[in-house]
C-alpha cells in the first residue's frame, strides 16, 4: 500500500477533527508487530535456556567440563563476526534513511558475507567435533556410550541450540536477499523502509541470541582448565 492513502477524519460532538489510523501505511504498527514477533523468539529461546539450566542444575560439574572442551577461539571469532555484522546492518539502514540507497545495498551485501563466514566457521567447528566423536547420533552421543549424562545433555542441547541459531542465520540471509530485491524494485526506499527496519531488527535479535548462547556454552567452563580447543 505504498501509494497515496488518505486517512479518514472522525469528528467529535464539539466539531473537533481526529485523524483515524488506518491499517495502511502504519509505520509504528509494523514496528510494533515485529517487536511482538521478536518476543516470541525470546520465549522460544527462553524455553530452551530453561531446559539447559534444568540439566545444568542437575549436573553442574559435567557441564563445566563439557563447556571447557569447546573451541573458544572459533566461538569467539564468530562472536566478533556477528558483532560487526550487526553494525553493517545498522549502518545500512541509516544510509537508506539518509537517502544513500547504493550505500545501503553495499552494507546489506557486507552483512550477507559476514553471515556466510559465520556459517562456514560453524561448519568447521561441528566437523572438528564430529571427528572427536561428538555429534548427534554419533560416537559418544549414542545411548550405549559411557560418557556422563551431563555431558551428553550438554552436547545435545549445544547442537540443538547452535543449530537452531544457525537456521535463523540462514533465514536472515534469505530475508536480506529478498530485501535487496525489494530495494531494486523501489518497493523499499528512503520513504518506505519498514521492511528494512524490521529485517534489521531481526538481525539484531539473531545477534542477541548469540550474545547469550556464546557465554553459556563456550565460557562457563573457561575457568575449569583446558585452553581453547579440544
Amino acid at each position: 500500500m505504498a501509494h497515496a492513502y488518505v486517512p479518514e477524519i472522525a469528528v467529535d460532538r464539539e466539531g473537533n477533527e481526529h485523524v483515524v489510523q488506518g491499517w495502511q501505511d502504519d509505520f509504528y504498527g509494523g514496528k510494533l508487530g515485529f517487536w511482538l514477533f521478536m518476543l516470541t523468539e525470546v520465549m522460544m529461546f527462553g524455553g530452551m535456556f530453561l531446559a539447559l539450566a534444568y540439566y545444568n542444575t542437575l549436573h553442574p560439574q559435567e557441564f563445566l567440563e563439557a563447556s571447557a572442551s569447546l573451541n573458544r577461539l572459533l566461538g569467539g571469532t564468530n562472536t566478533v563476526i556477528l558483532l560487526v555484522s550487526a553494525l553493517t546492518m545498522g549502518l545500512g539502514l541509516l544510509k537508506m534513511r539518509a537517502g544513500d540507497v547504493k550505500g545501503a545495498k553495499l552494507m546489506i551485501w557486507a552483512t550477507i558475507l559476514l553471515a556466510v563466514i559465520f556459517l562456514v566457521i560453524k561448519g568447521f567447528e561441528w566437523t572438528a567435533e564430529y571427528d572427536h566423536g561428538i555429534f548427534l547420533m554419533h560416537g559418544q552421543m549414542l545411548p550405549e556410550s559411557t560418557m556422563a549424562f551431563g555431558k551428553k545433555l550438554f552436547f545435545g542441547m549445544y547442537f540443538t541450540m547452535t543449530g537452531l541459531h544457525g537456521f535463523h542465520i540462514i533465514i536472515g540471509i534469505g530475508l536480506m536477499l529478498w530485501l535487496l530485491k525489494r530495494i531494486n524494485a523501489n518497493k523499499v526506499n528512503p520513504h518506505h523502509y519498514i521492511l528494512y527496519f524490521n529485517i534489521a531488527l531481526y538481525w539484531d535479535i539473531v545477534h542477541l541470541i548469540w550474545v547469550f548462547v556464546f557465554p553459556y556454552y563456550y565460557m562457563i567452563g573457561a575457568a575449569t582448565g583446558g585452553t581453547s580447543g579440544h
Binding site: 531488527l201 545477534h207 556464546f214 565460557m219
Partner: peptide, 23 residues
C-alpha cells in the same frame, strides 16, 4: 569462582547495549 555469574552479567550488559541503541 563464579564464572557463570560473571559471564551472564557481561552478556546482559551487551544485550542492553544492543537493545537500546542498535534496536
Amino acid at each position: 569462582q563464579s564464572t557463570f555469574l560473571a559471564q551472564m552479567l557481561i552478556a546482559v550488559i551487551k544485550a542492553w547495549l544492543i537493545v537500546i541503541y542498535y534496536m
